[in-house]
Amino acid sequence: MKNIFLFIRRYFNFLFFLVLQIVSLSFLVTYNKTQEAVYSNFANEITGRVNTQYNKVQYYFQLKETNRQLSDENARLRNMLAANFEGPDTSIAKGIDTLTRDTTGRIRKFIWLPAKVVGNSYSSAMNYLTLHRGGLQGVKKNMAVVGPEGVVGTVIDVSDNYSRVMSLLHTNSRVSSMLLKGKIAGSVEWDGTDPRFLTLRNIPRSIEIKKGDSVVTSTYSANFPSNIMVGTIYDFKPDGSTNSYLIRLRAATNFYSIQYVNLVENIQWEEQRKLEATPVKNQ
């Protein structure tokens, strides 16, 4: 017993070093699983507050670009107003519309919440954004984040007043997407190199694609509403020996100058997840 204490005393520094190494590596491995409940809420509040102070200054330098993005988005949305579409009436028989109309909010699927970006990174292989809106203001984990120009990321951490978003520029991010033309679904990820370009996989080679084709979020995507812009095809080549293309996309969102985003919550997701979690009974 005495020898054990002597050993610990003699090699205390080395053992201390080993312990700290193990602690930091386990932080890294289990991040988003266990430690968030204990530390992340507190740490998120602190770093979020510092980020807000910094953003107050830095925001002014991007006002021009932010204004342009928001007015572009407004113009795009105005273009989709029903009042812009009118053609000669070609109907012959008149029927009564029996579709359920969403007057009571019964069949609403997505709720949109605006948020200010106060922290943003794009230079490492794993990038995150901090939003000044948190659990008290209705943010939940796994909500989708959409900017004025397109998809931005997914919420991974929520504290009382701040939330952390895993940017699309993260080597672990996956967004279920499809080609706007033909509705062919694939998955968009980021290879960790250039923040302007994303990678689209799993599009079969039998499909004809062109440079400049739009890629939007797919109808299968659970947290993202469908038809949100992801990017446009920049170039493509066959993906090794597989039967699909490896497509490089030019990201729709300009990650360097993003100031306002919308958080999107799918309020029907719970039910869908419950159904999908039940084991399949093969008959």
Binding site: F17, S24, F27, L28
Partner: peptide, 14 residues
């Protein structure tokens, strides 16, 4: 905690 990657920089620093 600022970059959102707990442990990534702590390990090399230690």
């Amino acid at each position: 905690y600022f970059t959102g990657t707990p442990g990534l920089h702590a390990a090399p620093c230690v």
